[in-house]
Nucleic acid binder design. Sequence first.
DNA 1: CCTGAGCGA
Length: 158
Amino acid sequence: MAFTLRAATTTTAMAARAAPRGMWRVFSTNSPDSFNPPPTAGTTPGREQAPPSTNLFVSGLNKRTPTEKLREAFSQFGRVVDARVVTDRASGYSKGFGFVRYATIEEAEKGREGMDGKFLDGWVIFAEYARPRPERPPPQNNTDNFNGGDSYGRQRYN
DNA sequence: CCTGAGCGA
């Protein structure tokens, strides 16, 4: 009577290393009893979404995801005119988010609905409309910037 | 080389 010693193989954590850590942040958004939505604070300036445009803001990117990877990922839903992963100019590393510009707003909408919440390089990405932003930092001390001296950007406050 | 909310040189 000899029992075959079958070692309880270490079948632990077999998928724990197959997914990045940021993956679980999506599933950990449950509040047991702390369900208290602020009744008086329904609008948070800054967190609101931007109006539909051809420009998309993609966040949640893997910091190692290159621009071309972002482009070809969004190209499945439309014609990407321009794609860019924002990288820090000082170090050159990605900041974890980027921008994708489609040819039309229709394609941008399909791309947003098609890529929002999807996986890219093992990370759940979020796609939303990018806010209109000045191509240049806010006016500070432009003493020689009257109205016709736009030598850097084309967008002005008029 | 970084590990995570975020809107770009």
